[in-house]
Design a protein around this nucleic acid. Structure first.
Lengths: 199, 199
DNA sequence: CGTACCCGACCGAACGGTCGGTCGGGAGAA
DNA sequence: TTCTCCCGACCGACCGTTCGGTCGGGTACG
């Protein structure tokens, strides 16, 4: 077997460059240089720059959808489900940072990016539903549009880690990050009156 | 007086296009079309595309810094200061959505973007310090790196509104949005046991 | 008449993508 | 084992287009 490049390897490399330079800020020449092959060889593996974006986005979407499918099928209480989902979302984002970055940074200028935005909206809706169920279960009264806004804020907080967190490059590991995010969202850790836990 | 364009008008227009298409995804031809003048006329007002980015980023930075300066000078308790700052940050972001967007989306590929990242880090540090002081004031024990991580998560949550919130385009106004963000961060509204407030 | 504002025409460079062709390793037949 | 054929991986050269930016000149207001 020769030391050759598979499609997944090319996508891996492209996503890392996209993470650092942005999709629009990355040229096919940049990608070919990062992969150690020429630009024309790159086109042997993919048909277009946009296909690389699509494959990357699909990775993030598939993982998130699979996690939600699995969690929604459990028989936990709505509140437990919500907390588990946010925690697993954090862990999942950390494990798929370049993939999540291209997903959340899509602005909708091409057909692929519009598809990404539509799919993201579906994920938002599923999280909003989890929040609404949890609040209703806890007997809380709320405005009908509040769960959707809360869902976007939560996803926004968790997704923002792709802009600065790099696993293994600091004192904080993924579990500690998820723990802190969890305490901020569910224990009001920011208010200082968390249940005497140390982060 | 002719119906003419001032520099601030050009920056306003450019920022709106940057918000929708991203900086790299926007050409000077796009901007000139949006401004209703030709590309060469655009260069009468600005010396480069990067200058438009710099002016936009500076607006967001100046506003945020001025707010922090003002708030840090008060004699409130650390916890009150933290809560006021996060709330005012939310209001400020909503009132400067295009400006905040170019600031938080800078990836560091040019000198201007690297400057933006350095300035953002200073803002992160100031918020982290507020969090650390608040936690110490409340007698909470915490890891030394936790405030910095919490600050980034909070800024991440608040900054994410630039990706979906458009004032006047929905049932939620800015105050309600800030109120909900505040309750999530400080009252654990997501857990459902908030102090019986309706959002 | 100066100056602020704006224009059409244009430039070199970089862009995404295509082309014809090279190279080495695996499979099948003798 | 050797010869032949094939195919995936790769390459240099090149395509038309778009990029950020420039230039010389026009025009209307103070």
């Amino acid at each position: 077997m020769r030391n050759t490049l598979a499609l997944d390897d090319v996508v891996d490399i492209a996503l890392i460059v996209f993470l650092e330079q942005g999709y629009d800020g990355t040229s096919m020449a940049d990608l070919s240089a990062a992969a150690g092959i020429t630009k024309s060889s790159l086109y042997h593996h993919v048909s277009s720059k946009e296909e690389l974006l699509r494959l990357g986005i699909d990775r993030a979407l598939s993982a998130q959808k699979a996690m939600l499918d699995e969690e929604e099928a459990t028989d936990r209480t709505p509140s437990e489900r919500l907390r588990t989902v946010t925690r697993r979302t954090c862990m999942l984002i950390v494990s798929l940072i370049p993939e999540t970055a291209v997903l959340v940074r899509a602005r909708g200028r091409t057909e692929t990016e519009q598809w990404a935005i539509r799919e993201r909206r579906l994920l938002d809706d599923r999280l909003a539903k989890l929040i609404a169920h949890s609040w209703a279960y806890e007997g809380r009264s709320f405005d009908s549009s509040a769960p959707a806004v809360a869902a976007r804020l939560v996803f926004g907080m968790l997704s923002s880690v792709v802009d600065w967190y790099r696993p293994g490059h600091g004192p904080f590991d993924a579990e500690l990050l998820a723990e802190l995010a969890d305490q901020i969202l569910f224990d009001a850790a920011l208010a200082g009156d968390a249940r005497s836990q140390t982060v």
